[in-house]
Design a protein around this nucleic acid. Structure first.
Lengths: 154, 154
DNA sequence: GGGGATATCATGGGACCCCATGGGCGTCAA
DNA sequence: TTGACGCCCATGGGGTCCCATGATATCCCC
């Protein structure tokens, strides 16, 4: 169990602090991640959070691109110019700074969403909406593929 | 005997705990599953429960995609972000959390339904209804085919 | 084969620990 | 000085562990 799974809604206090879910802290420990690194998502009003290897993830992608292409520039800005370290306090809390607040719209509650090697920070309402939309689309895809509706399958 | 079979109705206590049927616990042991993971069914108000391989369906599809594409990200959210861990206590009980309660409508009793490689959690009334509907449909099919009336049973 | 001893299982309750959350205080820099 | 930030302590509730109980199934010995 070394992957970020499941999701949690935690509240942001008046100082902007949020507890990182205990389950995630265990994953961080088992992966030897001490410094959290976060960057804005390319498509969604969401922060991607993980260890410093998040950057190498981007670097690997960048190596496949022309250094003078717009995509490369974009990625470079996102990876280097936009990322921030998130120091966690002695209780394992991080602070929702202005950049996160602005990009995600998070105010007094934040949803932590595990996506395997990293996790994300969502505005709770946005996440619920997204999940509902994704589930609906998946259901349509699958019933379209099998021709069967909601009967017992598998 | 490494498949989940049959169904059991167990009661949920005031703390939200339910005993996982002993037969299922044996299957879990023989499959080497320690951490239970549950996902909402796409069509029914039912939880699908199994080991981490529940996600393999999504992971297989993800491997064919560019990790930077929106499609990949959406699948990751569905596979990892939706659903929850079910920690089981020392007696082999799991806790019906709010997400399960909300999706299934389970209150004080839960039906465990074996479906081979995983099992499901149903609201007992829903399951009985489902079974009745299936049996009725079968009976119709049969009488239509053979011309004989009445429900054929063992 | 019958009946008592024993093991397994579902379920309940109590105690305790951890976690999420809030508040206070000192430090450092603008 | 003031606000941002790091560190400490406090607290309540939820979750986990341990023990208990009754019911049922299994086994064993006479």
């Amino acid at each position: 169990m070394d992957r970020f799974l499941s999701h949690y809604v935690h509240s942001v206090d008046s100082k902007g602090r949020v507890s990182v879910p205990a389950a995630y802290r265990q994953v961080l420990a088992s992966r030897g991640i001490r410094d959290l690194f976060s960057m804005r998502d390319l498509y969604l009003p969401v922060m991607n959070v993980g260890g410093p290897e998040l950057m190498s993830h981007f670097e690997a992608k960048m190596e496949t691109l022309d250094p003078f292409s717009p995509e490369y520039q974009e990625l470079a800005i996102l990876a280097y110019g936009d990322g921030t370290y998130l120091k966690s306090d002695s209780e394992g809390r991080i602070v929702i700074n202005d950049l996160i607040r602005e990009h995600t719209g998070i105010t007094d509650r934040a949803t932590f969403v595990g996506v395997g090697k990293m996790f994300q920070l969502w505005r709770p309402e946005d996440f619920e909406e997204k999940i509902a939309a994704l589930r609906e689309r998946q259901a349509k895809h699958r019933s379209a593929a099998t021709g069967s509706a909601g009967t017992t399958e598998r």
